[in-house]
Design a protein around this nucleic acid. Structure first.
Lengths: 248, 248
DNA sequence: GAGTGGTCTAGACCACGGT
DNA sequence: CCGTGGTCTAGACCACTCG
């Protein structure tokens, strides 16, 4: 072949057309060209714009839907996904009651302050040690009983001026706040679970005996581009609720 | 419309063609028409057989691949999925080292006996209380150190004569045994996690202080038809390893 | 009824794996 | 080289939503 070399060099970073279309759509959504809740052009319009067939656009859109960046409804259209209190909570909150019933925890902020990142949080958030962090502690309740003591760390650079009101029940999920105030959508999270003994402070907040066993969840949440946005350390009393996971 | 009623009654259990094809393929795989590791006919042959287009068969096969019932390889063909020690372990075993490294636990059976199902195991396995169960206890090690104390329950009816050798390191994963000896493939599992205090027996086996915090994993494993096949209660020392989950 | 996404078809060509 | 799955196209028709 005459063009063997051109083909070979092109093959290195080859992506199928639908993947290229998907990437361009991710870019546009990520850059805010369409805002959460807005409708995208239909499949034929996008196909015309990108000079591909409708079937190729379709494949890209189905993949975006699988990634939860968009929502598609037959007869309605395709929309940029939006975090709401209802669905945001249940994509990421995996605690269920002992009878497997879904739980809706109430949340009360205990403290909020700015601090410098220690080594471990810095590493998990992929930032420099000593970088500025928002640190929030809060308590979450099931049916009025304290159940989860939580520490949340967010790089100040990503969310300058982030503020929540201590002492009152939070109306919104943190992820809704990130999206609405800063345009940052949490797309996925990585969790590590361990069993630990409650510290004196935790036992006091959770109304447990000293050194009671707690389920510790270390979660790193990332946006659609894979950037670490939040580190959350949750310590859960599993007398009232358990962590649920489905494995395939 | 004249045929409004016919359409309406048909609509109740309407399934797209590709879903019907998928179901028929699940039936055939589940019934053992093709054994694990065997190659399926290619897309065009299946399309001819079911009198649909190749694209429709393709959609059914992609869905089966997503469900891990089959494995597809470009240039090779489509094969019925097979549990092997390597991949069986890592679909369902979610413990990772503190550095997120994959761990390969060694397993030693402590006891094996037959017993009648108590109320809770019976409920979780969807069998009658008092039905016969195989009960196996075993200890799993990371790097030679005991880390997980495990109780496994399997309905005797599903696996008559199930036997494993106590006291020596197990060569095979339980799920490989289920598939190879009884033709039962574990397709998915549901897990519930809690933090508990070690019992005296567990602390002794795991070489821990009395009442040390352990991560308890209650897993119900199901075959491709959704039938509960195994109940497993694992109690893990999370000083050496943590449970990893990715949330989307 | 107009517009959207969902299904289905038919056929072309490409990339990969083994002979 | 042949057979496999993977991509891409073009077009038809269906099902759903809403004004």
């Amino acid at each position: 072949m005459d063009d063997g070399e051109a083909v070979a060099s092109a093959a290195a970073d080859y992506q199928p057309l639908y993947a290229q279309v998907k990437n361009r759509l991710v870019q546009r959504i990520g850059s805010g060209a369409w805002k959460p809740g807005e409708m995208l052009p239909n499949e034929f319009q996008l196909a015309a714009e990108y000079k591909v067939s409708q079937g190729t656009v379709r494949k890209a859109l189905l993949s975006l839907e699988a990634d939860r960046l968009i929502v598609r409804r037959q007869g309605r259209g395709t929309y940029v996904a939006r975090h709401t209190r209802d669905n945001s909570l249940f994509h990421f909150f995996r605690m269920v009651g002992l009878d497997d019933a879904r739980l809706r925890p109430a949340s009360v902020v205990l403290t909020q302050r700015s601090q410098r990142a220690a080594k471990l949080p810095a590493q998990l958030l992929s930032i420099a040690p000593g970088a500025a962090l928002h640190a929030i502690t809060r308590l979450r309740y099931f049916a009025g009983r304290p159940a989860i003591f939580e520490r949340i760390f967010v790089p100040s650079e990503l969310m300058p001026g982030l503020a929540v009101q201590p002492g009152v029940a939070m109306e919104e999920e943190m992820y809704v706040i990130y999206q609405e105030r800063y345009g940052i959508s949490i797309a996925r999270a990585s969790e590590r679970l361990a069993a630990v003994a409650a510290t004196a402070e935790e036992a006091r907040h959770l109304d447990l005996a000293a050194a009671a066993p707690l389920l510790e969840i270390t979660r790193v949440a990332r946006d659609v581009n894979g950037r670490a946005v939040e580190l959350r350390l949750s310590r859960c009393d599993t007398a009232q609720a358990r962590y649920a996971a489905e494995v395939y």
